[in-house]
């Protein structure tokens, strides 16, 4: 057991698999922080923290889950510390009772039903996309394409698993506002994926 642990620790740093994990972590952190320097630091810290507990996982998949867990905690801490910098007022403006859904209102007709050209299509076997790296590039591009503050709330919710209550507290917005922002993020992401990924797929 102990010899295995020692060997695992030796292998870890040299393993090209670690370089791949590091690359994925960096991408994940940058997506959320939009600050390459901070992302780099956080990934490094998370890797170091993981390595100091190298005994507690068995194999690469376990390691990856483990370091991503640490990384998420670091990102949450960072966001907590810097949440004062995020202007809650911007979020409220963007989702005010009138202006809020203007861009997406265009998807629906006067009575609130889908316009024929915007009606969500049937995606055949969407989960097959998960194994394609091109899909993830599109997914990330679509996240990037969302307004920054909307993407941030969405990622806090879906990637960092903060509940809406906490997100609201941190950003100083109401729960209702938070829901609208998440709804907007989902509408935008869905439409983007359909246009940039599934539309092309369906045509083949």
């Amino acid at each position: 057991m102990t010899t295995n642990d020692a060997r695992a620790r030796e292998i870890l740093w040299d393993d090209p698999a670690i370089a791949l994990i590091r690359r994925d972590m960096l991408r994940f952190a940058q997506l959320q922080l939009r600050d390459a320097g901070a992302a780099e630091d956080m990934v490094q810290e998370a890797l170091f923290a993981a390595m100091s507990h190298a005994e507690s996982f068995a194999g690469r998949a376990a390691l990856k889950t483990w370091v991503f867990g640490i990384l998420r905690h670091k990102i949450v801490d960072h966001l907590r510390a810097s949440s004062r910098e995020i202007c809650g007022a911007d979020l409220v403006d963007a989702t005010g009772p009138d202006g809020c859904m203007e861009d997406f209102d265009a998807l629906f007709d006067r009575r609130g039903f889908w316009n024929p050209e915007d009606r969500p299509a049937t995606w055949s076997d969407p989960e097959a996309s998960f194994s394609q790296k091109e899909f993830w590039a599109v997914f990330e591009a679509c996240l990037d394409h969302l307004p920054a503050h909307i993407a941030r709330v969405y990622m806090m919710r879906e990637f960092l698993e903060l509940d809406t209550g906490e997100i609201c507290r941190q950003l100083g917005i109401t729960t209702g506002n938070c829901w609208v922002i998440l709804h907007r993020a989902r509408l935008g992401l869905r439409a983007c994926l359909e246009n940039r990924w599934f539309h092309g797929e369906a045509a083949t």
Binding site: T65, S131, F159
Partner: peptide
């Protein structure tokens, strides 16, 4: 998937 550091990409 993205949160767990997607592991199954070819």
């Amino acid at each position: 998937r993205l949160r767990e550091g997607r592991d199954d990409v070819t």
